[in-house]
Nucleic acid binder design. Structure first.
Lengths: 207, 207
DNA sequence: ACTTATCCATACATTGTTGAATGTAAAAGA
DNA sequence: TCTTTTACATTCAACAATGTATGGATAAGT
């Protein structure tokens, strides 16, 4: 066939990634062949093997479109007064994360990463989940530690336990929602759960 | 080769299931062939196809060895006074669950179900996880509702939210631990997290 | 205008896996 | 003891998926 212009080539690359998301989410990563993905994008495997070296390379490119580190969420809020209210910083960052997750692309890719793929090639999704969890937990420990020094935490509650508790709760909510997002809105339920959890853990005097 | 006695046949069946657990956990379900499983049990695919119809049948048989419904955990405690202390019932049931999960067989199979398999054949692990989650959440709502009627819940905390909070926290802890169990003991961390969470949610007057 | 590199389709060789068919020797049953 | 069934091993046909090699047409560079 005919060669495409650079913009068209970039468009087909995006189309292939979109098709990969949809088919991966529907059939699982292992059970989908590269031909199925290509045909779903109205292309052939030739196009796929031109833009990506193999399935693992395609997968990594798919992930790279939805990176969402915890620190970025806090920085995007851009409220300097949050330094004095670390619990509120956690709350707003999580809410921002919830809003992102409701966008189809973020939701689909994370659902694939967590529920619809196994180890394959040189890709280990569990290692990626570990990295994400470690980074989130580290940030939470920092913020809860700051809250503890400011006296914003309930007496007897260590910042480590508070961070582990919050991270476990958020992770469980995350997994439950990604399993079937039609059941509830993660923004709504996440707001309720996070607010009550933070209120339970916050110092009863101030807050 | 030679035919085995009935006891020996049952032993090879168990050996095949054990081998399936180990290889599934190491390589993922989709990436392991039936030949790899058979060879890991010092057998051939002939033995496997005799005892199981196909991969999905083997998988289901593997799951059937570790069923662990929430209600059974409560009933196994067998303390009738728990009716008046529903929060303590939840606590003891979860601790019993943690102890079970530390047994290698339970840990491995659940790790496979949650982190190392996708949909395949007529088996949908996400549907199974949904069933498990629904059952656990239903039981939690019952117990927290009972606790609310007895005045054991903090004022302003609805039993539904308490149940969702607890289930999300337990689920997150579950997933984190199954991802790599070497990092911490689910019994130890689970005890700490569950105790603090229940204390946070319990009525401050009594308890 | 000419060349070249790009973008993609098509065809082919190779491999891995499945399921079933067949073989077989001993245990169970009579 | 004789037959039948069981519990596997071995072999084979068929397919599905991958990776690569090749071809072709045009956009881009000069």
């Amino acid at each position: 066939m005919a060669r495409r212009t650079k913009a068209e080539a970039a468009a087909t690359r995006e189309a292939l990634l979109d098709a990969a998301e949809e088919v991966f989410l529907e059939k699982g990563v292992a059970r989908t062949s590269l031909e199925q993905i290509a045909r779903h994008a109205d292309m052939t495997r030739g196009a796929l093997y031109w833009h990506f070296r193999n399935k693992a390379d395609l997968f990594q490119a798919m992930l790279q479109r939805v990176r969402m580190p915890f620190q970025e969420l806090v920085e995007e809020i851009g409220d300097p007064s949050l330094v004095e209210r670390p619990l509120e910083a956690i709350r707003l960052a999580c809410l921002k994360g919830f809003e992102r997750l409701e966008q189809p692309r973020y939701r689909r890719v994370h659902a694939i990463l967590i529920h619809h793929c196994e180890v394959f090639g040189d890709i280990d999704p569990l290692a990626m989940q570990n990295e994400m969890a470690d980074e989130a937990c580290g940030a939470l420990i920092d913020y809860f530690g700051c809250a503890a020094r400011l006296g914003h935490l309930r007496a007897g509650l260590s910042p480590e336990v508070a961070a582990e508790l919050t991270q476990a709760m958020l992770g469980g909510l995350f997994h439950d929602w990604l399993r079937n997002h039609e059941r509830f809105s993660i923004l709504e339920r996440g707001t309720v759960l996070l607010d009550t959890q933070l209120e339970l853990m916050g110092a009863s005097s101030s807050e």
